[in-house]
Structure formats: C-alpha cells, structure tokens
Amino acid sequence: MNTARLFHRVHGPDGAPVVVVLHPLATHSALWQPQLPAWSGRFRVVCVDLPGHGRSPVLPDVTTLGQYAEEVRLVLDALGVDRAALVGLSLGGMVAQAFALAWPERTRALVLAHTSARTERAIRDLWSTRLQQAADEGMAAQVPAILGRWFPPDFAAVAPMTLQWVAEQIASTPFDGYAAAIGAIQRLDHLDQLHRITAPALVIAGELDAAAPPALARLMADRLPHATLTTLPDCGHIGNVQQALAFTETVGAFLVQSLEPPAFP
C-alpha cells in the first residue's frame, strides 16, 4: 500500500542507483530542473516536494526535521527503494542529515549543499522575526528580502528571468508550510551527531553565501567521518541555480564515484 503523503516524481532509468533531491525552504522540487537532464541519464532521480511546499500538502502533524525525513522515507518505501543517495540544499540538507542519522543503512551517500547542522539562538530569533513579517505581510512581500539573501547582486543584475522563476516559487508557498519549516529549522541540532554518519559525504559551500556561510560548511565537513568539502567561488545560497554547470558536474562526479561500481577490464 502506498502510504507516501508527499508529491514526488521519478526521472531516469529503472535499476539505476537512486538519488533523492530535497529542495530549500519556500521552493519546490522544480528547482532541480537545471540538474535533471544530466543526472537522470545516470541515476534514478526522485524529486520530492517537502511538506507544505509545491504540490505536497501541509501536514500539521509534521513539525520536526526527523518527521520530514520520515515522510521522505515513506516515499522510498512506496517506490520500493531500499537504499538511496540524498542531495539536499539548505532546508533539504537539514532533512537529509536527519534521514542519514535515522536510517544509516538506507543512506548510500550524502550531499549537503548550502546548509548547516545547528541553528544558534541569534539565528532562531532572526527566523522568528522573518516569520512574523510573513504573517503580517504575506509571502509575496518576502520575495525581495529572500532573493537578496540568496543571490549576490552581480548575479541578480544579469539573471532577472531566473530570479523571477525562483520568486514565483517563494510567493506560491503556503504560509503554513513556510511556518512549519521555519519551526523545524529553528530546532535544528545535528552537529554533535554528524560523526555517526559513515556514508560518503560531499559538503558544498558558496563563497558569498550569507545564509549558510562557508564556516558552517567547514564545521560540518570536520565532523563527518568521510566528507569532502567544496566551495563554489563567487556563489551565493542557491548554487544549483546560480552556478548550475559547476554544481551539476561536481555533485554528479561525486555520485558516480559513490554509487557506481568501478569498471574492470
């Protein structure tokens, strides 16, 4: 019986290694469109809309990152997938951590991009302020500030249509889904548990990322037993969009190395 409650789509050949992609806050799985043509040729890519985002319903009983990860697990169960790699960006990276901690035997590899493993008190307070603003003004009013945090000014100046594409995702996110995800982010505290994740990991930082600075990526990479750290130069918070080619190839090479058996003559 299919017990999955999250909207998901599968791209790529049957029998290929499975890669689950998890999107940032206030977006949805379409944000991975720059990567799909390349990755779906080698992998079975499962694109998931997290609760209250995209075409997935708001789930009032899902309030923690562990519960978000449980919903992702139910998607894999419904697809008959025992083990997968997870690629998470920002909020998606936090959910991927929670999944790997809860189900290490089902985690083949992990990509943590533009994310963190602990939300400090000052950042929790900042999230509360942003949430109140969204409650007072609506999601559309949040778009300029979010885009300003996510994309460096030089990129924003030359990519107005790309930013409009992202802006539409932000504005269409239900407030209740946004609020629930912020609550989960505020309770993020995985840092002291990362040593338990033994799967190969790739940590990606953006040199100009104000939302998840490179220092946070280094902190995670230092705690993960089998991690590689890559920093994308001149890049902000949404590296898979701003530097789509570099992101696609860097992550793709890691996934090939981690998931595909070596060829022997």
Rank of each mutant, 00 (worst) to 15 (best):
S128W: 12
G138H: 05
A135G: 13
R124H: 00
T129E: 14
Q132C: 06
R124K: 09
Q132I: 07
V111D: 03
R130D: 07
P144W: 10
G138M: 01
E137A: 15
V111L: 08
E105W: 15
Q142T: 13
A141W: 04
G138C: 02
E137H: 15
L126N: 12
A122C: 01
I146M: 12
Q142K: 10
T119L: 01
L131D: 07
A135L: 07
A145T: 07
V143C: 08
P144M: 06
A140Q: 13
T107K: 06
A109T: 01
R118W: 04
I123N: 00
S128M: 13
E105L: 10
R108H: 14
R106I: 03
R106E: 05
W127E: 01
R130V: 10
E105K: 12
V111C: 10
G138V: 04
D136G: 00
D136A: 11
A113K: 02
R124T: 01
T115Y: 05
I146F: 09
A113W: 03
R124D: 00
Q133F: 14
D136C: 01
T107C: 15
I123A: 12
A109E: 08
V143Y: 09
A122S: 10
W127L: 05
V143E: 09
R106S: 15
T115M: 03
S128I: 04
Q133N: 06
R106Q: 12
R124A: 07
L126M: 14
D125I: 00
Q132F: 07
P144E: 03
R108P: 08
V111T: 07
R124W: 03
L131F: 02
Q132T: 14
E137S: 13
G138Q: 02
T107H: 09
R121I: 09
T129Y: 14
A141D: 00
T107L: 11
R121W: 11
A141V: 06
R130N: 06
D125F: 09
R108L: 15
A141K: 06
L126V: 04
T115I: 01
L126I: 00
A122E: 14
R108C: 11
I146A: 11
L110V: 03
G138L: 03
H114V: 02
A135V: 05
T107V: 10
E137R: 15
A122M: 03
S116E: 04
W127K: 07
A122I: 05
R121F: 04
E105H: 15
V143F: 11
R130Y: 04
L110G: 09
D136Q: 12
A135N: 05
A140F: 02
A141R: 12
R130H: 08
A134H: 05
D136V: 11
E137D: 09
L131Q: 14
T129S: 11
A134W: 03
A141G: 08
S116H: 13
D136W: 00
D125Y: 14
V143Q: 00
L126Q: 12
S128K: 14
T129D: 12
L112D: 01
S128Y: 08
A145F: 02
T129Q: 15
R106V: 04
A140S: 14
